[in-house]
């Protein structure tokens, strides 16, 4: 039982990290950035390239080196996200919502198959891996490395939340989410804030990509597709646009999958998880913590 909870929380923290970027972008410019999962893939490959450039790393140094790689990768994927917004989304800011959505799908394919052209179709394996011996806690088997990864994920999420609720930058983001036009009249540089939002969201996805690469080991150019869908589900469950809600949604989705597999068997896991998505969309489309949208007359 505790094993199921731990499995769910571990997977859920990955979902939550990726879902945050979805949610932030949606909250601010109402765009479902379908290329977001591919930024996760980009992060995994960037981390792989950096580790390759660093060269051989002894096992005892694995964690500190990986943390440095994590920071460098977050910078890189953050900038990639900014570039994506500048090239693919900003020219379409005033266009109908559907054009933006289709552009996002196109950007997703461009990233996937661009990476395939650059790195090949063969899956790659991280040179430094977090294996580690497992320890028993309350009947659940977990490793120190898993704890560190969850710790990093939680720290990133708490940091993001503080940034959004307590700083000027965060206030500008929330203002734009409420009303972009009025914000710009009040002197907020809308384009710059949107760029920074993309930077933050993409950096978090990149962090999740490196962590997944280091823990699971295998990366390939299609790895972002499924997690992109899952992150979207998590964001909807928690309340898309709402930061704490999205984190909660990620963890909840991880738990749902873990228990769904246990109760119904592996073949029903995704049916269960996406069934919950449909349920939420019909019964409570604003998600767990999403705010009620009042109809403006």
């Amino acid at each position: 039982m505790t094993q199921l909870v731990w499995n769910g929380l571990f997977v859920g923290s990955f979902y939550a990290l990726v879902a945050l970027g979805y949610s932030m972008v949606y909250g601010i410019i109402k765009l479902l950035n379908f290329a977001h999962g591919d930024l996760y893939m980009l992060g995994a490959f960037a981390g792989f390239a950096i580790l390759g450039a660093v060269g051989g790393v002894s096992a005892s140094m694995a964690l500190p080196v990986l943390l440095m790689v994590l920071v460098a990768t977050m910078l890189l994927t953050g900038l990639a996200g900014v570039a994506l917004e500048r090239i693919a989304y900003r020219p379409l800011r005033g266009a109908p919502r559907l054009s933006l959505l289709i552009t996002a799908v196109g950007a997703s394919f461009a990233l996937e198959y661009g990476m395939r052209a650059a790195a090949g179709a063969d899956p790659r394996v991280y040179p430094v891996r977090l294996g580690g011996t497992s320890l028993e806690v309350l009947g659940a088997r977990l490793t120190l490395q898993q704890l560190v990864l969850v710790g990093v994920a939680v720290a990133l999420m708490v940091g993001l939340n503080t940034l959004i609720t307590r700083t000027r930058e965060g206030r500008a983001m929330r203002a734009i989410a409420l009303d972009p036009r009025t914000s710009s009249l009040m002197g907020v540089d809308v384009n710059a804030v949107i760029s920074r939002t993309f930077f933050l969201g993409s950096a978090l996805a990149g962090a999740a990509g490196v962590m997944a690469g280091a823990y699971y080991g295998k990366i390939d150019f299609l790895m972002g597709f499924l997690i992109g869908l899952k992150a979207f589900t998590a964001a909807v469950i928690g309340g898309i646009g709402n930061i704490p809600g999205t984190m909660l949604g990620g963890l909840l989705l991880g738990l749902l999958e873990s228990f769904g597999t246990f109760w119904l068997g592996g073949e029903w896991r995704d049916v269960f998880a996406f069934g919950v998505l449909i349920l939420f969309l019909t019964v409570r489309p604003t998600g767990l913590l999403g705010e009620r949208v009042t109809e403006r007359v």
């Binding site: 199921l4 873990s258 896991r269």
Partner: peptide, 17 residues
Amino acid sequence: VETVTPKESDYSANVTN
């Protein structure tokens, strides 16, 4: 007989089963 979803990274739920 355990079924897994291809193209995932985490199979811990299946492993527990």
